[in-house]
Structure formats: C-alpha cells, structure tokens
Nucleic acid binder design. Structure first.
Ligand SMILES: NC(=O)c1ccc[n+]([C@@H]2O[C@H](COP(=O)([O-])OP(=O)(O)OC[C@H]3O[C@@H](n4cnc5c(N)ncnc54)[C@H](O)[C@@H]3O)[C@@H](O)[C@H]2O)c1
Ligand SMILES: NC(=O)c1ccc[n+]([C@@H]2O[C@H](COP(=O)([O-])OP(=O)(O)OC[C@H]3O[C@@H](n4cnc5c(N)ncnc54)[C@H](O)[C@@H]3O)[C@@H](O)[C@H]2O)c1
Lengths: 257, 257
DNA sequence: CGCCGTTTGTGAACGGATGCACAAAGTCCA
DNA sequence: TGGACTTTGTGCATCCGTTCACAAACGGCG
C-alpha cells in the first residue's frame, strides 16, 4: 500500500512550530520515508559549518556558500536539506540559526547523549580531551580502564574509573553510546559487555571487526585503513605521472626559486 | 607459531610472477578499468583479516569465512577480489599468504610509505604510538610541532622536531602522505604548507573542511561526526521502541501502522 | 575415469546516490 | 506596483554499488 504519499503541500505555511514532518517519528524525512544514509552522514558536516558561520555573526547563508564551506556540491546540499523540510527562502538562502536548530533536531542532538569511553590510554585520553565532544551534543558519562594505576586520574573533568563499573555506569546514566579504545585483543570482550549492559551504538577504534547482534550499530575508525586508502591513490597518481613524464625528469627535485 | 614457511607441495599456485593484470598500471583492475572506490576502501579490511588468519597458521580460506571475518557479504568479497585478478581456486578457496601478497600489491604496500605527522599533542602521540602504523606499510618520517617545549621529546622511536623543518623533512624523505593533528585554527595553514612542499595525500583529524587544489587527496576522521551519526540511529531505535512499548511493557499489541 | 560436492567468478536486476538543469517562489529596487 | 534578479526545491538521467543466483571450474573419491 502507501504508494504516492499524499500531496506535497496541504497547508501552505512552512510550519515553524511543527517539525515539517507529518509523522512524529524521528529519523524520517518530510515525505515519511527514512532519511538517506548518505544524507545523515553529511548533516554533521553542515552543522559544523553552520556553527562556524553563526559564531562569525552571519545570519543568512545561500546553498552555494554553505556547500562550499562543507565541501560538497550545492545541489547535494539543497537536496539533503530538503529531506528535513522546506527551510530555505528562495532568493535569499537559509537562516543560519534556524537551520542549526533544524539540523540538530534531525540528528537528535536536542538532548545530550551520555557516552562511556572504555580505555584510558593514549587514544582514550585524546578523545576525552577532544572539545568537539562536549560541545556537540555529548557528555562523557565515564572513562573506564582495567589498569588500576590509572584509576582516579582525571582526564578533562572526568576521573578514570575501573572497568568493573561498566554495567553500573551504563545503567545509572542510561548510556546507549560507547567508545572502545582498548587494545584489539580486549575489544570484543568489552564490546560484549557494553551490549549486554544495554549499549546499542558503538564507536570502535580497535583494529578488528566487532561481532554484535542485530540491532546494534557499530562504526569504526582506523588510522591504518585510511592511510592505506591514501597510499593507493598516491601510488596511482605517481604512476600516472611517471607514465606521462618521459623518464628524464621523474622525481622532481623541486624548483628552486 | 607461524606455519608460513611450509610451502605446500609444488605446482598449485597460479602465476606468481605475473600480475594477472595485463596493464602494468597500478590501481587498475584486471580488466583495465580503475578499481571501484568502494572496493579500495574494503581491501585494507580484508588484508587485516588475512594477516590474522596467516598468523594463526591457516593456509587456505574460503570466501564465506573470510567475508565473515571482514564483516561483509561473501559475494561482495568475491567480486572485490575478482577485480584484482583470478586468485582463487574453485572448490577450495584462496591461499592466504598469496592473497596477502596480492592485496598488498594492489594497495601499493610493497613499499613503505614515509608519513609526516604534524601535531604532537594528545592525538598525535596516540597516532604515533599506534602499532598498526609501522606494521602496515608505513613509517613515521617525522613528528612536527610548534611547541618548543615538545621538541626532542621521543614518541615511539621518533623525536619531535620543530614544524619549521616541515619542508626539509618532506623533501629529504620524499614524503607524499601527511597527517594533520593540530588545533582547527592551525590546520589550513599546515595543510597549505604540506601541499606546497609536495604532499599529495592528507589525513585530517582537525574538525574543519580543508581546502586543497585539485590532485590532492584528503580524508578526514572526526569523532564527533561519528558520534552524531550513531546518535541519530540510536534515537530512531529508541523512538521506535517507545512507539511499540509504552514504558512499562504491556501486552504486546499487534502493530498496525 | 567419471561423478559428486564444493566454491569461485560473474551476469543481471535492483536500489540508492549524484549532479544537471530549470520552473517556481521569493526579494528588492525603481 | 511591477519587473529584474536571486536562489530554492526537485524531476530526471546517469552512475555506482550491492546482492542474488547459477554455470563453470576444481579437487577428491570410489
Ligand atoms: N583507530 C585509530 O586510528 C587508532 C589510533 C591509535 C590507536 N588505536 C587503537 O586504539 C586502541 C587504544 O590505543 P592506545 O594507543 O590508547 O593504547 P594504550 O595501550 O595506550 O591504551 C589502552 C588502554 O586500554 C586499557 N585496557 C586494556 N584492556 C582493557 C579492558 N579489558 N578493559 C578496560 N581497559 C582496558 C589499558 O589499561 C590501557 O590504558 C588500540 O586498540 C589501538 O590499536 C586506534
Ligand atoms: N578526529 C578526532 O576524532 C579527534 C579527536 C581528538 C582530537 N581531534 C582534533 O585533533 C587535533 C589535535 O588534538 P589534540 O587533542 O592532540 O590537541 P592538543 O592541543 O593536545 O595538541 C595539538 C598540538 O598541535 C601543536 N600545534 C599547534 N599549532 C601548530 C602548528 N601551527 N604547527 C605545528 N603544531 C602545532 C600544539 O603545540 C599541540 O602540541 C585538534 O584539531 C582536535 O580537535 C580530533
């Protein structure tokens, strides 16, 4: 059933109070369908650009400017935003603060999500100190580690606690997002405990593929994978250059001027 | 222990010398077309799974197993690998060590890429200490920082140098890959210097969109973006659950939409 | 030697994402 | 008030990536 989902316009006023989104369901586009995954991944980038504009006192921005700041095609930006509702003004652009609000709401950042970080080593410390953490809709519920030498040490404004507190921390703070920054051999075990405790979203920095049950969302960050992708393109580039340049002047020793 | 030395008796492996790839051009598939971007991004994951198998002494692996270890569909794995050439044996699977070699070669990891890290703060230190760095085809040419208090300090087995050495380091070591781990306001400036010095591939950890000329490749890693994407899905999940089960669950009623 | 079970490699159908190009909708100024 | 100008929102064609499903290829066994 369903088929053509109603007509695009029924009222006429672009609903300031409403959510531009008939279904109260979060995570759905104005047309009732879920937001495209690719759009979701770009919204945080737009949001960051918008914050930057807002801080600089810019009150209105056109899709050309905003898309340039976000590093994407302007048509793509407009289509992405159109999925949230019709929040632009033709001939003018978008109201920066209003768009910040709408994008934040679409991403579910009207609340502050408590996050638990497991692993207080080099990486865990870097993450916990990261400003973009606290300033962007999240708060650190706890940093956990198994090394008793680290317990009590303050990172940012949170003290490291022992990993045996994991279940308590998750339950008490209703944590649903966890970050794994422990060595690879310990990661799956930590993951299992997080999931058992109720965490449904995991950001994994350990270099292995985590096994999780359905309904649990895992994203990964891996420096070496990123570098390998870069290396691939770098080699292709240099090979093409060698192909083109006749053998004499390969490796350019760089101009001296 | 490793059983890698035990070469299975002769004769099994197809074309060790050849590359199964007519065009000598790196970065092209067996059919001459460039490798799909999505495939390139997965090859490092396969490679990691293969290393793990190899270390465990497994000599042969079928696409089902390998794809499970890599967390992807088995048809996808086979299609990805088929772009590199025909390196499997029907009815048997893939020779692990041989596939390690082929995937490494496809990614351009037969050489060791020198990488320069700019920013020796919390994050830069975590990255420099990361084992997956040195063990996976890369070496740290230098860690650079502007803070004179950090100069000379050893991280891993590299001493921090002043950022004014940037151009020298890049030129002397023929560095083409750079990692940016400085505060956001300094990132574009560092990026410009890297590019001017000859770096064509950049991994950016600072939370902003870098502007680079054509021909320069930028990848970014951003914790807060990853968390925001996770938050989006987390909220959708919990909203759906609330929709279904009003808080204190009652008799599960049939869904009606 | 021929058959059987296994696994690869890929043709084909599908769905999602991208980007062009333009009509509709708005502003602003004379 | 009206017309020129700007910018949004989107239809559409295209491209890329995923997945199914199966014939071809292989080893092994009786
Ligand atoms: N994705 C990336 O770009 C990237 C970069 C650097 C490091 N890493 C990975 O991140 C992880 C952490 O790196 P690091 O440099 O911080 O390592 P680290 O050794 O400095 O820190 C690891 C911490 O985890 C703690 N730990 C170990 N087992 C634990 C357990 N079961 N429960 C709780 N805590 C435990 C240790 O006590 C230690 O403090 C490693 O898996 C590393 O490979 C990833
Ligand atoms: N992507 C992520 O997940 C993530 C996580 C944490 C931090 N970060 C970002 O990474 C960057 C570094 O974070 P951090 O925690 O290490 O910060 P930090 O303050 O600990 O370290 C930054 C270092 O950069 C140095 N620096 C500043 N300007 C420089 C310049 N012009 N040239 C060379 N060095 C310079 C400083 O002296 C300092 O040592 C920041 O942009 C931060 O926002 C990203």
């Amino acid at each position: 059933m369903s088929s053509s989902a109603g007509s695009p316009d029924s009222g006429g006023i672009p609903d300031i109070a409403g959510n531009g989104n008939g279904s109260g369901q979060p995570g759905t586009a104005a047309n009732g369908r879920p937001l495209p995954e690719a759009t979701i991944a770009r919204l945080p980038v737009y949001l960051r650009a918008l914050y930057s504009l807002s801080e600089r006192g810019v009150s209105t921005v056109a899709s050309d400017e905003l898309s340039a700041a976000a590093g994407v095609n302007s048509a793509k930006l407009r289509k992405d935003l159109s999925h949230l509702g019709s929040y632009g003004i033709r001939g003018v652009g978008y109201d920066v603060d209003y768009l910040v609000y709408q994008v934040s709401r679409a991403l579910g950042l009207t609340q502050r999500w408590p996050v638990v970080i497991v692993g207080g080593g080099n990486l865990g410390r870097a993450l916990a100190n990261y400003g973009g953490f606290v300033n962007r809709g999240f708060k650190i519920a706890a940093i956990l580690d198994s090394d008793r030498g680290l317990i009590g040490r303050r990172i940012g404004d949170v003290a490291v606690r022992h990993v045996s507190d994991l279940e308590d921390v998750v339950a008490m703070n209703k944590v649903v997002i966890g970050v794994i920054a422990v060595p690879a051999p310990a990661a799956q075990g930590v993951c299992d405990r997080l999931v058992a405790a109720g965490v449904t979203s995991i950001l994994n920095f350990a270099p292995l593929v985590l096994k999780v049950p359905d309904g649990v969302d895992v994203r990964k960050v891996d420096l070496s994978i990123e570098l390998q992708i870069l290396a691939f393109h770098a080699r292709r580039r240099s090979a093409v250059r060698v192909e083109r340049v006749p053998e004499d002047e390969q490796v350019p020793e760089e101009e001296s001027v």
